[in-house]
Amino acid sequence: MREATILHQIEEIYYPVLTAVGIPVNLMAIVILSRGKCGLSRCITLYLVAMATADMMVIFTDVLLYTIIPFYFPGTYMDTTPAISFILVLLSAATDVSVWFTITFTFDRFVAICCQKLRTKYCTVETATVVLTVVSVVLSLKNIPLYFIYEPEYIVDNVPWGVKISSSFLTESAWVAFDCLSIILTPFLPFFLILLLNALTVRHILVAGRIRRRLQQCNNNEDHHDPEMEKRRKSIILLFTISGSFILLWMTNVLYFMYWRTANVYDFMGVHDPNYIAEQTGYMLQLLSSCTNTCIYVVTQTRFREQLRDALIYPFTAVVAWFRSSTDYVRATIPVQSQVPPDDINFD
Rank of each mutant, 00 (worst) to 15 (best):
M57T: 10
D348Y: 12
R331C: 09
V320L: 14
I149R: 13
E12D: 11
N221E: 11
R212K: 11
V134Y: 06
V21K: 04
L141F: 13
C115W: 12
W161I: 11
F107S: 01
N158F: 11
V340N: 08
S92G: 10
A263I: 00
V99I: 13
V336A: 08
D328Y: 09
E306I: 09
A29N: 07
L308D: 01
F148E: 05
I236P: 03
A50Y: 06
V138E: 11
V319K: 14
P187I: 06
A94Y: 04
L7E: 09
L288R: 00
P274F: 04
Q339R: 14
D108I: 02
F73D: 00
A4S: 13
V49R: 09
A52S: 15
I68M: 10
R303F: 05
I32F: 07
L132R: 04
Y154T: 11
V137M: 12
D108S: 15
N158E: 15
T302D: 11
I165V: 15
P82C: 03
P315S: 02
D62S: 15
R203V: 04
V99D: 02
M78D: 02
E228L: 14
V125L: 06
N26M: 06
W100E: 02
Y122N: 04
P74E: 01
Y283Q: 01
A174N: 11
I44N: 10
N264T: 01
F148I: 01
M56V: 01
F105K: 05
D108T: 13
S167I: 12
Y256H: 06
I237H: 07
F60Q: 09
C291N: 01
S245Y: 01
E151Q: 15
I59W: 03
S290D: 00
Y150W: 13
V137G: 07
S182D: 06
T262Q: 00
A29I: 07
H224Y: 03
I32E: 04
T67M: 12
A112Y: 01
R2Y: 13
F192M: 14
R119G: 00
D348F: 08
F188H: 13
Y47Q: 08
L65A: 10
D273N: 04
L196Q: 02
M51F: 10
I6C: 03
D328L: 15
F178V: 02
I113Q: 09
G39T: 09
L193T: 07
L181K: 00
F246R: 10
R42G: 00
Y122A: 09
I165M: 14
V131F: 08
R42Q: 12
V63W: 08
L249C: 06
D62K: 07
T201M: 13
S41G: 15
A83N: 08
P160W: 03
F192S: 12
R119S: 14
L215P: 00
V89N: 01
S325I: 03
L7M: 14
E153R: 14
P315G: 02
S338T: 14
T292A: 00
C123R: 05
V330H: 09
V21L: 15
S245C: 14
S166Y: 07
A50P: 03
G209H: 08
I59G: 02
G36A: 08
V49C: 12
T95F: 10
I184K: 03
A208D: 13
V298L: 15
S182F: 01
Y72C: 03
I155V: 15
L312W: 09
R261M: 09
A54G: 08
W322D: 10
S166T: 13
H225K: 02
D179L: 04
L197P: 03
A54C: 10
F323N: 07
